[in-house]
Design a protein around this nucleic acid. Sequence first.
DNA 1: CAAAATCCTATTGCGCACAATCTAATTATG
DNA 2: CATAATTAGATTGTGCGCAATAGGATTTTG
Lengths: 154, 154
Amino acid sequence: MKPQDNVLKLEQQLCFAIYSAAHAFNRAYKPLLDALGLTYPQYIVMMVLWERNGQTVKEIGAKLDLDSGTLSPLLKRLEKLGMITRMRDENDERQVVISLTEHGKSARRQALDKIVPAIGQLVGCGVDDLDEMRDRVIKLKAALDGAVSHEGAS
Amino acid sequence: MKPQDNVLKLEQQLCFAIYSAAHAFNRAYKPLLDALGLTYPQYIVMMVLWERNGQTVKEIGAKLDLDSGTLSPLLKRLEKLGMITRMRDENDERQVVISLTEHGKSARRQALDKIVPAIGQLVGCGVDDLDEMRDRVIKLKAALDGAVSHEGAS
DNA sequence: CAAAATCCTATTGCGCACAATCTAATTATG
DNA sequence: CATAATTAGATTGTGCGCAATAGGATTTTG
């Protein structure tokens, strides 16, 4: 085996580990979220709204790194589920403000009672470890983000 | 703020960090893979084949945690790109063996020359750090996988 | 104030990801 | 050997994720 072969293998490891772990999270959440009738991306949007109710599509997109092509249909589904309302801002009619319904607010309690403990127990391995790992992954993402935005720079 | 609020926030962190990093990898790879005409999932399938040519759909799926609903159309696209061939196994006609074309084999060189160095420089931060991080993410995925398969167990 | 530029959201099209279903081939069982 | 059960892939339908485009609303500029 040439030395290059190892490089290609190694190179695969981190990106594929992340790719694969993301799918594993999805699968792990699915049975829990089915009880709420939410998908994982929908759940993430709900978390953003639980932290602060009444945000524009753009604000949500900035926090989640998602554009309107993803969010518009997703938010319509959340509206159809009775989780949120979508209203044009009176002062700036370009913006659409997303607000939680009572049903959407109460879903938060289910998440706290059922999902958080289940995932917590599942991942286990100590809070400190998780914190450190999260910080590293966030730094990794920042490095990747930087590279994309500096593309044309000298 | 109630103490529960922190839990829901914290709980978001790792899963969202992974989710978000996976997207960041995708975006970082895209401009590099465009030169090859491949998407990131297609590139991953090619890496599996570069490691060992001539594998069944099931073998590829097992390595990547993907089912036929994902792989069947993806492999057809790779075939249309002239990267692979799909042939029924003579001994067991249920199986389809995927093999690299010359074009598919030569794409590996481009990956080694262009993509690997670019991503390597991009992620940076020392090989040892990356190795450790990769191992942690793999363990995390294993924990998540285990939880899914043990669902009904006491 | 009018034209141009910018901004926000929605839409379209393509490619995953996965559940559910289907078909054909193989193996197990009586 | 015939039937049942299992296995491998393909197909269908739904929901992201993102590029490209379009349509209004707002701001900037002359």
